[in-house]
Design a protein around this nucleic acid. Sequence first.
DNA 1: GCTTGACCTGGAGTAAACTCCAGGTGGTAT
DNA 2: ATACCACCTGGAGTTTACTCCAGGTCAAGC
Lengths: 122, 122
Amino acid sequence: MSYLIGEFSRLSGISIDTLRYYEKEKLIAVNRNSSGRRIFTDADLQWISFIKRLKETGMPIQQIRRYAFLRGQGDSTLRERLTLLKNHRAFVLEQKRIWEEHLSHLDQKMEFYEKKIAASEK
Amino acid sequence: MSYLIGEFSRLSGISIDTLRYYEKEKLIAVNRNSSGRRIFTDADLQWISFIKRLKETGMPIQQIRRYAFLRGQGDSTLRERLTLLKNHRAFVLEQKRIWEEHLSHLDQKMEFYEKKIAASEK
DNA sequence: GCTTGACCTGGAGTAAACTCCAGGTGGTAT
DNA sequence: ATACCACCTGGAGTTTACTCCAGGTCAAGC
């Protein structure tokens, strides 16, 4: 299946302007039809979903572009892409740790508040 | 103890410009000495540390300002501040969950890569 | 008494990642 | 054949959170 930008925007949950921006930034490489319109495929949908995840995990566009470039080179870059993901994994793991820490600090702070409120109540 | 902005910047790890920006945005209320210079205290250091944590947990300045405002109103706002923190806790918990999910997805992706590399090797 | 360094202000500039706009084209429904 | 709508482009504007700058003040050391 293939889609024009409007439908693809709906399917992917990414705005038309952002899709065009991603193409400009070389995160995606999009084919055109005879009248110059962008044609997106299901494969693009997979790829865009992964981009979304990379973005959600805080990867800057510059780095995603690097990954996209490697991907465009084919299977010879599998190792390098895996290395990139490994580094990113370390980052994601650290983020998870940090949020756990934030949570426990926040819980302490809230406990402190609860005590203070209880004290001011009697 | 009290500090001028330069020393306080070093102690808090927040740049001089950012401290002035935080004052402008009403995240902090700073006293001045007779010649108009900002005087920071240890209490300010505590507060700034908490602001740092709120920022690290993705709380936008607008919302921190609201918290700062309530804090400035004294103990009568303890409950409201606790409510604010409770809501924020839910957010932080969700973030933790999301990062866990990201981690497991990434691990799946990497496994996929490893298999593909192994296959292309023989 | 003059220089120096840390401080002051208002306002402009920056970076990242979009988001919007004006002006134009192509295919289709009436 | 004309209206309409989705699409196109280049480029300007937006948002958030700073960061930098020019021009000025003040207290201390020489």
